[in-house]
Amino acid sequence: MVADARGATPAGPRSAAVLGSPVSHSLSPVLHGAAYRALGLEGWTYERIECDAEMLPATVEGSPAHRIGYSVTMPGKFAALQFASTVSERARIVGSANTLVRHPDGWFADCTDVDGVTGALSAFDDLSASPSAVILGVGGTARPVLAGLAEKGATRVVLASRRDNAGPAAECGRELGLDVATMLLTDLALPGEIADAEVLINTVPEPGITEIVDLVSHARRLFDVLYDPWPTSAGAVAMAAGIPVVGGDVMLLNQAFGQVELFTGMPAPRAEMADALSAALGR
């Protein structure tokens, strides 16, 4: 069932957690902990739980009564969507969920990664109202990127992949109303497409991006979904060339705002969360 839902602030202390494998590096406890302190939610806690996709249903079903929600990182995002009783429309289109919220009748799934993308794109103060984009990579992260671009008013997007496997991501983009073109990363026309686009978005993880990092030099702006260590390979090329760069830390921060609001029913304390993330990253 598709739904659009917001949680209400529960009475008494509650807990939330991030599910993933590996999960020890997750900065979600930093962000959510800062939010709970700023909101005055005494006794609220947030923890990391090592959990792969196969373990997710049993883990969530066995949640303690005080557990209000979960942040979900890889490899559990597809399993989270399948497990949920109700899902948001954007999570359905994207095909994955990074957020599970406890409701009286079950678990609601959403994809606040889309908010992360729109927040990162908004960090470019001169982006047009209908930005064109090239996305490097067609894996799971490419789909919320497409949804974020659609929310920002984009029309044409180029998906560039190592193999001829862009079909599922392209279908997602077209369902979102985007004009999607696909090409290989080795296509000789790709540098020109990058130069014409308003923003280049990298979803290819290290070390794979190092093999094609010269493509970044053609960009007008770079949004790299990676953030640690910083600068990334792509970010370093852009910075050396004077190309405006937004890193994945901005996406991480903005996706957490939506999760906090779904878990607590209160506006996210954005400044306090941003300060906590900056301190954790040493920036």
Rank of each mutant, 00 (worst) to 15 (best):
P205H: 06
A97V: 01
R221Y: 10
T112G: 10
D113W: 01
T118M: 02
V237F: 01
I68A: 11
P267C: 08
L31S: 07
A276S: 09
A79T: 07
G148R: 01
T186K: 07
V2E: 15
A236T: 02
A3S: 15
H103Y: 12
A189P: 07
P231N: 14
A91M: 06
D52R: 01
T264Y: 02
A3F: 04
P244A: 07
G235Q: 03
A241Q: 13
L178I: 12
V213R: 03
G282E: 15
G12A: 04
V246A: 06
E47A: 14
G148K: 01
E61F: 10
S130T: 15
G282M: 13
L200H: 03
P207D: 13
T45F: 03
A240E: 15
A279P: 11
D52C: 00
P168R: 07
A279I: 11
T59A: 13
A234G: 10
D164N: 15
A53P: 04
P64K: 05
L226Q: 13
D187V: 03
A79R: 00
S24C: 05
T141D: 11
L159R: 03
S88T: 10
P205W: 08
A80R: 00
V199Y: 00
A17G: 11
N98F: 03
S128K: 08
D224E: 12
D164V: 12
F223N: 07
G242C: 08
T155R: 15
R92M: 11
S128L: 11
G137M: 05
G76N: 07
Q82V: 12
A3M: 13
N254F: 03
K77H: 03
F263K: 04
G95M: 05
R283W: 13
P29E: 09
R92D: 14
P29K: 06
D249H: 14
C111H: 07
V87C: 14
G167H: 13
P131T: 07
G235W: 02
D179Q: 09
L222G: 05
P205G: 08
T99I: 04
G282F: 12
R156F: 09
D115A: 13
N165P: 03
G76H: 10
P104I: 09
A8S: 15
D126E: 14
S122N: 12
G247I: 01
W230E: 14
S15K: 01
R143Q: 12
G265Y: 05
A170L: 08
P57G: 09
A5S: 15
A268E: 00
L281T: 11
T73M: 11
L226M: 15
R90L: 14
L281I: 10
A150F: 03
A91N: 04
M183C: 15
G167W: 05
S161Q: 04
